[in-house]
Simulated scan of single mutants.
Amino acid sequence: MTEFRRRHLLGAAMAGAALPFGGARAQGTTMTAAVYPGGWDEALRDVLAPRLREQGITVAFEPLFAVDQIAKARAARGNPPFDVFVLDPGPRVSGIDFGLFETFDPAKLSNLGQLPPGQADAQGAAVAAQVVGIAYNPTKVPKPKGWADLFKPEYVSKLGLTGFGTTFGTISLIEMAKALGGSVENMDPLFAELRRIRPSVAAVGQPAAMPGMFQQGQIDVMYTNTYTVTLLRSRGVNIDFAVPETGAAAFMTTMHIAKGSRNIDAAYKYIDAMISTPVQAALSQAPYFFVPVNKDVTPGADVPMRSISEIGNFVTHDWAKINPVRPQWIQRFNREMAG
């Protein structure tokens, strides 16, 4: 995921309002939570950690991408290196398959009612959403109607391509394959088109490089999430978000308590605070631009929904099918699109 990058630090004013937890405060508890490097790390240190301190809980953050969290937890062999995971759908399925999570009881979340039905289960709880579509510079190219448009000459020469290494990249490329007559089971139509446009495409690069290329005018079209669009616009970049005619894709980022955690009560409070209205409202604003999962918090203007309750209207994907074949896609993309 997720794919939240380089945010400026929020002022100390964000650390204000206390959260409405019932029961006694924990005293002197220290827990460790995995967090995505970059923007997530900054945001949770600024917004979430101060509210946990009000509960007597000190959080030590460990910046790790999702696949690295899974690898580190597996290598620990029952001695979890952190108390809470934060994961996108693919690594979440891997964590379930490897038995890395404590059984989760949603009833222990005082803010459970703020989540849409089904967004907390026996594995963990949703804490943020991502909405994925097409970003374009409206002063340079017309608004794309759908994924297949990206293979037309007027877009190819301005297109930034990135592979299957991220969740947003993977689902974007799957949607392109579907638009070209393919599927998760048959990605050949996608790779045939990628090979065809390779000599003319503006750039092929790492996901983290795409926003900078867009800002510098090296590309004018890319597939990305609404967070990136809002962040670039806040920096004065001409950029809009296009919802493909087949619909924007969406997925949830979730938190899970590590199997064998010695700070389970604190871990529940950590996740509960993350989904609370004050934290979700703060994280949805500049400079963070999270897509809130709390029903009482309105997503930002670039997000094509007015409440997380609309998430069922978006395109979703079956990661139990994707995970086994994704490594092959990554290797194939790197091999065929390199150079």
Rank of each mutant, 00 (worst) to 15 (best):
F4D: 06
R5M: 13
R5Q: 15
H8G: 08
M14R: 14
A15L: 11
A17V: 12
A18S: 15
L19R: 10
L19P: 11
F21M: 04
G23I: 07
Q27L: 15
Q27F: 13
G28C: 12
T29W: 04
A33R: 02
A33K: 01
P37T: 10
G38S: 11
G38L: 09
G38H: 08
G39A: 13
G39E: 10
D41Q: 11
E42H: 10
R45F: 10
V47P: 02
L48D: 09
L48Y: 11
P50G: 08
P50V: 07
R51D: 11
L52W: 08
R53C: 07
E54F: 13
G56D: 04
G56F: 05
I57E: 09
I57P: 12
T58R: 15
T58N: 11
V59N: 08
V59A: 09
A60V: 12
P63N: 10
L64D: 06
L64T: 08
F65D: 13
A66L: 11
V67A: 14
D68T: 10
D68M: 09
Q69I: 04
Q69V: 03
I70T: 06
I70E: 11
A71V: 08
A71R: 13
K72S: 10
K72F: 02
A75H: 07
A76H: 00
R77S: 09
R77D: 09
R77M: 09
N79R: 02
N79I: 00
P80K: 00
P81S: 00
F82T: 00
D83I: 00
D83C: 00
V84I: 02
V84F: 00
V84G: 01
F85K: 02
V86W: 07
P89R: 07
P89T: 09
V93K: 15
I96T: 03
I96W: 02
I96N: 02
D97H: 14
F98N: 11
L100H: 01
F101P: 03
F101G: 06
E102T: 02
E102K: 04
T103P: 12
F104R: 04
D105I: 06
P106F: 06
A107R: 09
A107F: 04
K108P: 03
L109W: 01
S110W: 01
S110M: 03
S110T: 07
N111G: 04
G113H: 01
Q114K: 03
Q114S: 05
L115E: 01
L115Q: 01
P116W: 00
G118Q: 04
A120C: 06
D121V: 02
D121A: 03
Q123A: 14
Q123D: 15
G124R: 03
A126I: 05
A126G: 10
V127C: 05
V127S: 06
A128H: 07
